[in-house]
Amino acid sequence: MELIRMTDAGLYCVPGGFHIDPWKPVHKAVITHAHSDHARAGSEHYCCHVHTRPLLQARLGATSIETLQWNQPVTINGVTMTLFPAGHIIGSSQVRLEHGGDTWVVSGDFKTVDDGISGAFEPVRCQHFITESTFGLPIYQWAPPETIFEDMRHWIRQNQENGFNAVILAYSLGKAQRVIRAIGEDFGKIYAHGAVANMQDLLINAGWQFPPVVYINPLEPPPSIKGAVILAPPSAESSNWLKKFQPYKLAVCSGWMQVRGNQRRRNADRGFVLSDHADWEGLLTVTRATEAAHVYVTHGFQSVFARYLNEQGIHAMELETAFGKEEES
């Protein structure tokens, strides 16, 4: 590695003098997206996509934030940096670095399906590609989102008929917005946990168009609702807050729901295989499209995906990072 080196704070661009998604406070941090395992507090200066800015302000209390648009190159100490859409969540970006004829791309987290919110993923050619591998096993093949949301609507309808509320667990930043967009107000107002409601307020204030959600305060008596849709982050799963909505059925939205055992372990009534990450085919297609001569595989099934790429004639190695700890709020 020359242009980018691994340090104890994370990925570091040597000539540029900045880190990308560092896990320790640094002088200058370029942030791919606002999930907590990639965007950490304490750095002096931040640089990110313009859509990520309000999120960093709210989540990290960051003040010194420089923002960029996609496809808008900037030069930092002679290194040309350009952000490209990663399709993962709002503002998520791939970071392309060019210096002395060397091109690197740090994918951050990405998905290849256009969710209509996060921007459509754009493959970027480079010589060195640092990719995630969260779902880097061939058992992970996603169905089209429309199919999943159709199942979700069917499930909600069924619960309504049987007098159950439908509690849907989804990350407050990312999947919650997708669910809110897809379900809309088809089943009346969507009720939300504080984490989801706050995120919606934040995004709406930042100019995004979303149907409003109804915040349910944990300290107030339970609302008398029946057959409603309630959106909460995964951390609410075993909370007292959920008990307000009895009788309810619980669904989890996650790529891990692909395997039946995981679904049963979560004790969910239903698992929707809805992910903000690329599936196996997505990872392969993107990696091939970069035409990179060197691929560095991070968080997920690193060893599997790296080995498979090597067998396919793409030089790849594992790269240990601190990414991939599940976003909890």
Binding site: L137, P138, I139, Y140, Q141, Q258, V259, R260, G261, V304, Y308
Partner: peptide, 19 residues
Amino acid sequence: LFEESYHTVGDLAETIALL
């Protein structure tokens, strides 16, 4: 890779259905 998948899924019938 088939075996790696099987160890993650833990069930042959399901592994094959997913692959």
